[in-house]
Design a protein around this nucleic acid. Structure first.
Lengths: 156, 156
DNA sequence: TATTGTTATACTCTATAACTATA
DNA sequence: TATAGTTATAGAGTATAACAATA
């Protein structure tokens, strides 16, 4: 035969539906769909928002490596994102006094104000999710997701 | 003040740690880290693999719109990915007889063979996850993720 | 020499709009 | 006119290597 007919039965692999990476992607897409309009309204990409969020959550200034680890961004991507956020005066960059190689990043007043302004909308969306999904189930889900990460990072 | 000191306490928003989109991203990254070497060994991007996986799982040929919906890829991205996979002779493209606008995509013998060859490695990785995480908990997680998608897609 | 971070480069994906072909 | 899909275009992220500055 020339063309090709799909024959799932011939492949010993779980169904697309039960694929864990796909299930995580679907869930993330469904969730982000609720938050995306909020970010678009402020001209923020998801990645930029992750950086701002990490800085807002930190009790202290963060260096580039710490932000990269928390946001799952690679150095080169993060470098450009930080340039962008600095140009928009949302982020402040200083050199660590004890190690001139290391940068210290923090939110500016404007950055803090932006995150603080978005927070109510974000929390309203969360309330909507908790309302529909149940807050106990949401807690359970977060716990399972944390445990999955631990299971993945265990020694081989 | 000039610089900026982060003050999480001033922002009424849940911690970065308890952010659902971040938890889903972390879990997905941790999971994909286990599968990525397998894809890299076959020169497949995650998106290309999602397309092959969708075609392998289908009982019949799929059109571009169906693949886009299942893989969360946009038309233009998918168009290029399909060109790439067609060039590599992994995917076969035909025109639907009843509607010449519609394409019918399926795996070629080589595509089927590729997916079939990767399947054992994929299943071994799954077995590892189930072993560490527990298969009942994995089932529970998949169920919660499905329900979350339903909760997100409900009428506003 | 090792580390922190940026720059260089090539590729891929995202996103929106415009377009072609078909219905 | 509406729909399926591709092409155009601009922007942003991914990934690896090379590099500069500092330790």
């Amino acid at each position: 035969m020339t063309g090709a007919t799909p024959r799932q039965a011939e492949i010993a692999m779980r169904s697309f539906d039960r694929s864990l990476p796909m299930a995580l992607l679907r869930a993330r897409e469904a969730t982000m769909a609720l938050f995306r309009p909020m970010l678009a309204a402020h001209n923020l990409t998801e990645q930029q928002w992750r950086v701002l969020r990490a800085l807002a959550a930190a009790d202290t200034a963060l260096d580039v490596g710490q932000i990269a680890a928390q946001t799952f961004l690679l150095g080169p991507s993060l470098s450009r994102i930080l340039n962008n956020l600095e140009r928009r005066a949302l982020v402040h960059r200083a050199t660590a006094p004890e190690d001139a190689r290391r940068a210290q990043l923090s939110l500016t007043e404007a950055g803090l104000s932006l995150v603080g302004g978005i927070a109510p909308t974000s929390e309203a969306t969360y309330a909507q999710i908790e309302n529909r999904f149940g807050s106990e189930r949401l807690d359970g889900l977060l716990k399972l997701l944390d445990d999955l990460v631990l299971a993945g990072s265990d020694s081989e």
